[in-house]
C-alpha cells in the first residue's frame, strides 16, 4: 500500500469517527423538538452536553487532513460545493449558539426559539452532509484544471437530495438509541417509540438510496469486481442493520447502539469503496481527481502519516477518558446547559 492509499484510509477513519460521534449528537438535535417540556428538553440537550464539542473536532481534523494530504481535492470540493459548505458552517455556528445560550435565561420564548434553532441547525447540517456525499458519489463537472464548471442548482439533483434525507434518517435513528441509553422513566419510554419509528424510516430510505445508487451511479460498485472480499462488509452491514431491531426488542439498547455504530461505519466504507481511487469524480469529459493526481508530495504524506501515528493513540485515549467520565444516565446539575 502506498502512502496515498494509506491517507485515503486515514481519511476514511476520520470520517467514520466523525459520522459515528457527531452523528448521534446531531441526531439528538433532530429529535430535540419532539421532546416536550423544559425539563425533558434540558435532559435531552445535556445528554450530549459534554460530548458534542469534542465530536466536532473530528470534522475539523478531517478537513485539515484532507487539505494536507490531498490539497487539490480539498480545493476543488470546497469551492465546487461553495454554498452548501457555507450553509453547513453557518448551521454549525447556529447550533453551537443554540446549545450554549438556550438555558441561560428562563424565558419560555427565549428557550423555545433556541430549541427550534437547535433542531433546524442540526437537521440542516446532516442534510447538507448528505447532499455533499451524494454529489461526491455521482460526480460533478470539472474542467481541465479541476475547477468545478457546474452551477449551484446543479448540486441539488434528486439523487443528492435523497442521500440528504437518508443521512437525516441515519442520524435520527442513531441519536434516538443514544438518547435511550442516557435517559430514564417517561422520557425514555417515549424515546423507545422513536427508536422504532426512526429505524423504519431509516430502513425505507436505505432501500431507496440503495436502489437509486445501483440504478444511477454504476461506478459505485465497480470496485467490488476487483476486491470481492469487500462483499463481506455488505453482509456485515445487513447483519448490523438487522441486529438493531433485534437488540431493541430484546431490551439491550447498548447492543443496538453498537450495531448502529457498525452500520454507519459500513456506510462510510461503502462510500469509500464507491470513490476509490477517485476523490472527486468528474462527470464531464475531463479526468477525475484521484488519490494520485490530488496528493501532496510523497515525503509530506510520509511525514503526516508519522504525525497521525503519533497523534491518533492520544486522541483515542482522550476520547476514552471523556466518555468514561460522563458515562451513565444524564442528570441535571448546576453545570448543565
Amino acid at each position: 500500500m502506498d502512502f496515498a492509499t494509506l491517507w485515503f484510509v486515514i481519511l476514511g477513519f476520520l470520517l467514520t469517527g466523525y459520522a459515528i460521534l457527531d452523528g448521534f449528537d446531531l441526531g439528538v438535535g433532530i429529535l430535540h423538538l419532539f421532546v416536550k417540556g423544559d425539563q425533558d428538553r434540558r435532559l435531552t440537550l445535556n445528554s450530549i452536553g459534554p460530548l458534542w464539542d469534542g465530536n466536532e473536532v473530528w470534522l475539523v481534523t478531517f478537513g485539515g487532513a484532507l487539505f494536507a494530504a490531498f490539497p487539490e481535492a480539498y480545493a476543488t470540493a470546497m469551492s465546487a460545493l461553495y454554498f452548501p459548505v457555507i450553509v453547513l458552517l453557518f448551521s454549525l455556528i447556529g447550533r453551537a449558539i443554540s446549545i450554549e445560550f438556550r438555558s441561560k435565561r428562563p424565558s419560555a420564548a427565549w428557550r423555545g426559539w433556541w430549541d427550534f434553532s437547535f433542531f433546524l441547525s442540526s437537521a440542516t447540517v446532516v442534510f447538507v452532509f448528505g447532499v455533499a456525499a451524494g454529489n461526491m458519489m455521482y460526480g460533478i463537472p470539472l474542467d481541465a484544471g479541476f475547477e468545478h464548471t457546474g452551477s449551484l442548482l446543479g448540486l441539488l439533483d434528486p439523487y443528492s437530495i435523497a442521500v440528504g434525507f437518508f443521512a437525516i434518517s441515519v442520524c435520527a435513528m442513531h441519536g434516538s438509541i443514544f438518547l435511550y441509553l442516557k435517559t430514564e422513566g417517561a422520557l425514555q419510554a417515549q424515546v423507545h417509540r422513536w427508536m422504532w419509528r426512526t429505524f423504519f424510516a431509516f430502513l425505507a430510505m436505505y432501500a431507496v438510496v440503495t436502489a437509486l445508487t445501483l440504478a444511477t451511479v454504476p461506478h459505485a460498485v465497480r470496485n467490488f469486481a476487483e476486491w470481492p472480499a469487500a462483499w463481506i462488509v455488505v453482509v456485515l452491514n445487513v447483519l448490523a442493520i438487522a441486529n438493531i431491531p433485534r437488540a431493541i426488542h430484546q431490551g439491550r439498547p447498548g447492543y443496538a447502539f453498537v450495531s448502529s455504530c457498525c452500520t454507519i461505519a459500513a456506510l462510510v466504507f461503502l462510500f469509500g469503496m464507491a470513490l476509490f481511487p477517485n476523490l472527486v469524480v468528474s462527470s464531464s469529459a475531463h479526468p477525475s481527481l484521484t488519490i494520485h493526481n490530488a496528493a501532496s508530495s510523497e515525503p509530506t504524506l510520509k511525514l503526516m502519516a508519522l504525525i497521525a501515528a503519533v497523534g491518533i493513540p492520544f486522541v483515542a485515549t482522550y476520547t476514552g477518558i471523556v466518555y468514561w467520565v460522563f458515562r451513565g444516565k444524564v442528570k441535571l446539575g448546576k453545570f448543565s446547559y
Binding site: 481534523t61 478537513g63 501532496s296 497521525a308 476520547t319
Partner: peptide, 23 residues
C-alpha cells in the same frame, strides 16, 4: 496545501482533540 495543510492537520491531531476532550 503540502505545507500549510500539514500545519493545520497537525493542529487538529495534536491540539484540538486535547482541548475539546478535556474541556
Amino acid at each position: 496545501g503540502d505545507v500549510f495543510g500539514s500545519a493545520l492537520a497537525s493542529e487538529g491531531i495534536f491540539a484540538f482533540f486535547l482541548e475539546s476532550g478535556f474541556l
